[in-house]
Write a protein that binds this DNA or RNA. Structure first.
Lengths: 229, 229
DNA sequence: CGCAAAATTGAACCCAATCAATGTTCGTGG
DNA sequence: CCACGAACATTGATTGGGTTCAATTTTGCG
């Protein structure tokens, strides 16, 4: 790994308070790799060799069973994944693929477990990260079970707008079929749901969503701090 | 807390390798309390005061939104809950209530965080526990999204049979409405699903389920080690 | 301009929840 | 020991949310 990249990694919250010695130990065997879009990074059922960290791009976590597949999460920088499998040294429960070209930091699982035992700051950071990931899953489980697909879309629009600066105007950076999968619905259903939201203050034209009536949209979406972000 | 109870707690995996000193520190402010059935132990949105551990009985984790409620998990001894909230010192995302009379060990959140920082064995055990809880949520999320309700029931029957000794004969210890809620379906739907499973090797008469054709049931249920147990 | 992929629209269908009615079980008190 | 009531369980009919399949329109790009 080059120095510029090592500096980038060093600044991550996960390594913030780790001693220089232990950080070097982790990095000496780690590598930062670029992947094109659509590459399967890990496969459910395999044993973890590396802790993965999304440094750039986005990664989809998904699972399959009986010829069906479901998206479980979409990760953006900077997020670890498969941390739980690495800690317990048990098989992955999910698969992962790149949704865009991506840069992934890979740290050997054995090194992670070794440094965890000797560096309290790293242990603290890891457990914090894991707790955060846990809470994310709980939030998305609640989102899935307590809202219908139109409500999930409405809340996504509110969040995405906030994320893009709250201008009440969203430019889609991904195509709609990807958005549909991220929201746990089919592309057909996304179309219908967007049509529904016309009644609740959202005007769409192609990849431009305009919130024409925020109050109406919030009224419909019922955002909830115990579910959203 | 009485000595007998302290011994019981001391034997939990979570405290196995914790030093005597730190264990005493945790226990000096902890208490083991009995609750009747149907008591709400924690409420989503509150800040965590205590780490909870189910020592006896069973506890339902649930969440509410917009006048709807959903069961997220059912815990049996010995399991921690709200560990992630305690570690991050953030509000609960779920509520919890006793499903049966229960005995709960409550350790002040501040003590947990304090000992975590000073006792590597405790840190290791906590992170292991958290990773295990995380993987449980992922499994139930996959179970929910990749199987329909009849398949979930079929797999529950296979697991419960194994749990009761693999005799091919299950005696229900809970009533069917509770089972329905645990499997994420309505009591009506449980009835219909049991009727369905008659075609796949399950004979029921009241609270007795008999697996008359294991091969047929497994064929239908398609158990999967990356989802079940 | 023309093609392929993406998006939309309509129709049929599936799964599960809800509502309503009926049947069953079980505990209690006469 | 039986009778009764309340909770539980089953069954049927209806509804709603969502997927799938098929056909059509739009978009983007060579």
């Amino acid at each position: 790994m080059r120095q510029a990249e090592a500096d980038l990694v060093r600044a991550l919250p996960l390594f913030e308070n780790v001693s220089e010695k232990h950080f070097d130990e982790l990095m000496s065997t780690a590598f930062l790799q670029r992947f094109p879009q659509g590459v399967t990074l890990i496969r459910e059922g395999d044993l973890p060799d590396f802790l993965h960290i999304v440094v750039e791009g986005s990664v989809e976590l998904f699972a399959t069973h009986d010829a069906h597949e479901t998206a479980l999460d979409i990760l953006e920088p900077v997020t670890t994944f498969i941390l739980a499998a690495v800690i317990r040294d048990e098989v992955y429960l999910k698969s992962a693929r790149t949704l865009t070209p991506a840069q992934i930091l890979m740290i050997p699982a054995a090194a992670v477990r070794a440094v965890f035992d000797r560096d309290a700051a790293f242990a603290r950071a890891l457990v914090n990260e894991l707790a955060m990931r846990y809470r994310c899953v709980v939030r998305s489980l609640k989102n899935e079970k307590l809202r219908n697909s139109t409500e999930r879309l409405a809340n996504w629009i509110l969040q995405e707008d906030a994320h893009q600066g709250g201008k009440g105007q969203i430019a889609l950076t991904i195509d709609k079929r990807t958005l549909a999968s991220r929201l746990g619905m089919t592309p057909e259903n996304l179309s219908r749901n967007l049509a529904q939201l016309a009644k609740h203050g959202v005007v769409t034209s192609g990849p431009q969503f305009i919130i024409s009536d925020v109050a109406a949209l919030r009224e419909f979406a019922k955002p909830n701090s115990l579910i959203d972000q």
